[in-house]
Every structure is written in structure tokens, then in C-alpha cells.
């Protein structure tokens, strides 16, 4: 198991945000987590990447205990995070955005005397091509469209060579066409990385959920199964999707 979680709990001001007894992820697995608002999905990712400290419980990543480690330590171990709101560096060019993300020595002196090598440039180009941003390389990231910023952020995470990518609502605010492109990109990436995706858009979930889907409700695990089983489960429909959810009707 690449990732295994035991008895993880965190509460904010007395409210249990997350109480996850068990969760595990295989290597190179693409897992989708769904659940209504306040189900603890983003909180779970926050704990995995070290942004939020858990009250109790353990998270093992590659048999290393990561609960209690800092963001930088966890990032170095190989967990990369893509945020819900695109967070890129708007004042830097797309190329520089990618350059900063690439895996290399990141202390002050290496940065002061850094010279780009040919291998690195090739690698940056290769990733830019994967997310379709080669024509925009010299543009300021702040001038990109919302969708392009989402892809840039995915590229930033990919360049860190993470074993595990945490992707928070990658399809939020995208057009249908862009959503499909993002889904294809994630599927392609899942050949090389393990990925956890949080998503609301059911059509998008159907596109990418080739394996298991985890359903969280009020911070607890409701069920874990393939998308077709989850979609037809009465409890899921009742407490999350609702009978009148128009998206479900379409599917």
C-alpha cells in the first residue's frame, strides 16, 4: 500500500470535520473521493499534505509516518497538492512557474547560482506539451484563462515528480470541453502517479473513475466501491446526490 490511514480524526471548534477509521491507496491508483459539502474531503487532503494537523490517528506514506511532518518535508517525500482555487504565480512567466516547480536542489545558494541545463529545459517542454501550454510558455501566468491556470498548476505538481498527487476539484469552473481534456490528462497521469481526486461533477467522475470511488459523509466513510455501484447505492443517493439531482438524471 502506498498510503494507509488509521483512525484519523480532526475537529474544528468541537465539530468533527473528519473521523476516518481506515483508508488505503494502491500504487498507481486513481481514486475519486466524493461527498456533500462539509464531508471533510478537502480537510482530508489538507492533513495528507501537512497543511492541517490531525488531532489523532496516523497516516503512513510508503511506510513512513507523515502525520506531524511539515508541508516541505511531506512535499519532499513525494506528495504533491493541487488546490481547489488555481494557485499559480501570476507575476511569473509560465516557464518560470514550471522551473520553480521542477525537482532540484531548492536551498538559497543553489537558487542564487542556478543555471538551466538542457535536460531540464527538455523536461519542462515535455510537461508543458502534456498539458498543452507550449505556446504560452513566455506569457505571464496571470494572463492565462482559468482552465489554462488549472492545467499549469497540474503541470507544477507533475514536475515535482510526486508519487502521490492530491487534486482538489480540477474541473471546477471549466467548460465541458476543458473538463474532458482535464479528465483525459488525469487518466494519462495515473500511469505514472497515484492520484486522489476530489470532485463534484458527476459526469467528470464517471469519466475518470476507472477504479474505486470513496464516499465521505460528515467526515465518515460511507462506502467505497466502483462508480456504478456507488451511483446506484440508495444511501449515497439519499444523503449526497438527492433524488432530484439533475446531474444524476442525465447519467
Amino acid at each position: 500500500m502506498l498510503l494507509s490511514v488509521k483512525d484519523l480524526a480532526v475537529s474544528f471548534g468541537g465539530v468533527h470535520a473528519l473521523a476516518l477509521s481506515q483508508f488505503s491507496l494502491r500504487d498507481k491508483e486513481l481514486r475519486v473521493i466524493i461527498g456533500p459539502n462539509g464531508a471533510g474531503k478537502s480537510t482530508f487532503l489538507d492533513i495528507l499534505c501537512g497543511k492541517t494537523k490531525a488531532d489523532k490517528g496516523q497516516v503512513f506514506f510508503n511506510d513512513t509516518l507523515i502525520t506531524g511532518k511539515t508541508e516541505v518535508q511531506i512535499a519532499r517525500l513525494g506528495i504533491g497538492r493541487k488546490f481547489q482555487k488555481p494557485s499559480v504565480f501570476p507575476g511569473l512567466s509560465v516557464y518560470d512557474n514550471l522551473l520553480l516547480a521542477a525537482r532540484m536542489k531548492k536551498d538559497i545558494f543553489s537558487s542564487l547560482f542556478f543555471k538551466a541545463t538542457r535536460e531540464l529545459n527538455d523536461r519542462l517542454h515535455q510537461v508543458a506539451e502534456k498539458v498543452g501550454l507550449v505556446p504560452q510558455l513566455q506569457k505571464l501566468a496571470g494572463s492565462l484563462s482559468h482552465g489554462q491556470q488549472q492545467w499549469l498548476e497540474i503541470a507544477i505538481v507533475v514536475l515535482q515528480d510526486p508519487k502521490l498527487m492530491l487534486v482538489d476539484e480540477p474541473a471546477a469552473g471549466l467548460s465541458t470541453e476543458e473538463t474532458e481534456k482535464t479528465g483525459a490528462l488525469l487518466l494519462e497521469l495515473s500511469n505514472d502517479h497515484s492520484i486522489i481526486v476530489i470532485e463534484h461533477d458527476m459526469q467528470f467522475v464517471q469519466q475518470i473513475a476507472k477504479e474505486r470511488v470513496t464516499v465521505l459523509v460528515s467526515g465518515r466513510l460511507l462506502m467505497e466501491d466502483t462508480f456504478s455501484v456507488v451511483r446506484n447505492d440508495q444511501r449515497v443517493i439519499d444523503c449526497y446526490l438527492g433524488r432530484t439531482n439533475p446531474q444524476l438524471e442525465i447519467i
Binding site: E71, R81, F89, L92, L100, I156
Partner: peptide, 13 residues
């Protein structure tokens, strides 16, 4: 300056 959290998740101290 632009995004402190993003740069620390890119493993910069």
C-alpha cells in the same frame, strides 16, 4: 509574494 503556500508545497523552505 504571489502565492506563499504554492511555493512551499513545491518544497521550497
Amino acid at each position: 509574494r504571489d502565492s506563499e503556500s504554492r511555493i512551499s508545497y513545491a518544497a521550497y523552505n
